[in-house]
Write a protein that binds this DNA or RNA. Structure first.
Lengths: 195, 195
DNA sequence: TAAATTATTGACCAATTGATCAAAAAATAC
DNA sequence: GTATTTTTTGATCAATTGGTCAATAATTTA
């Protein structure tokens, strides 16, 4: 068996494919678009990824991983957990508009676009969203234990609210392009929960 | 010139097409899917609508019209404007899940799916969303004049917030299926603005 | 009823879709 | 350095795509 000599390339390829899928969606991206973007001929392409759906699956995980990295980074640069989460929200909603192919969350775009015909991709997206919600709810509990959040706050409920806001605000930005309105609404998210 | 003998049928056709587009999206719906759903052969189909994009455009307006009708209906059945808007939110987010083809807003699905390649459809969807926001902001002003809302509330800002919540909550419902969480969050929307 | 107009039909078209495969090239093993 | 395995290549496939069109059928006008 040959050693996997193309490991780095595979990550690059998945990353390029992710960006294209994020921009144009599953049905809007043809396998030829993808093959051209990643500079692979059909044989290599299908040998490496099996099918368009499998590559999309990997692209979803690539997207989610990057999103989680941004959360970690925001947390480590912030003086408190709550400020870290708020910095993350600001970063993902407003701070990358010129660097990414869409204002909207790729997972949200996926559950919006796809139906039962791609049930696995929908389920995968839902699961990744739920994972982020759980992650945030854990962080909020830590923040609460550190005295950043009022004691009566239910952190699971607040995490749900954060995800709803993220979904709503990113969609609203795509719809209206109104950064200052979105900025105001981000500031309100934790306003009644903070100490 | 022949009389338009098929006026009623055309509305029925647009309505069926709207439901199919709403469920499967623009790229996910083929012209054959549409032709079968509305029982028209290609010639009649293209004579009536010109192109897939034009029919989608009509479908967007059909969707928006129905949404506005639901708002009017909610208002007329409610004892106050604010309660009418809240009833509308409840109705559109939770009250139709078994009667419509998707939990999510068709306009949101459209701006999520499409790119500059269908710029007109994106612009149309954005405009219809903005129209609803303006409508709600006017209603809130009426409610404020009637003493239902605190005087210091900015009704344009609150209308923005309502649209963000609608986008977020409908997407969250699609993602999580958690009706009770959504129900709780709807109740919170006006909680700090009411008198 | 006859002529003129409009609507419907289904065959058809060129382009694109996701995917396969045998041959050629490159890399590894011996 | 040769033999074996793996990768890459580009032609190709069947199916589907959005859309056209001449022939037929149904209406309307007169």
């Amino acid at each position: 068996m040959m050693a996997n000599t193309a490991k780095y390339d595979r990550d690059t390829v998945v990353d390029s494919a992710m960006l294209l899928f994020w921009e144009k969606g599953f049905h809007g991206t043809s396998t030829r678009d993808l093959q051209q973007a990643v500079n692979l001929r059909p044989g290599s392409f299908y040998a490496a990824f099996g099918s368009k759906e499998q590559l999309f699956r990997e692209a979803l995980h690539c997207y989610s991983k990057k999103s989680n990295e941004l959360l970690q980074q925001s947390l480590s640069n912030a003086p408190s957990i709550l400020e870290g989460i708020e910095a993350f929200i600001r970063a993902i909603v407003l701070g990358q508009r010129d660097k990414v192919p869409s204002d909207m969350c790729m997972l949200v775009k996926t559950i919006a676009e796809l139906t039962d015909e791609q049930a696995e991709l929908v389920a995968e997206s839902k699961a990744l969203l739920k994972k982020t919600e759980h992650h945030i709810s854990e962080l909020l509990r830590e923040g609460q234990a550190a005295g950043e959040l009022k004691a009566e706050i239910n952190c699971s409920d607040l995490a749900q609210k954060v995800i709803v806001q993220l979904m709503g605000l990113r969609t609203y930005l795509r719809s209206s392009d109104d950064e200052s309105a979105v900025e105001k609404l981000i500031t309100e998210i934790f306003s009644t929960s903070k100490i």
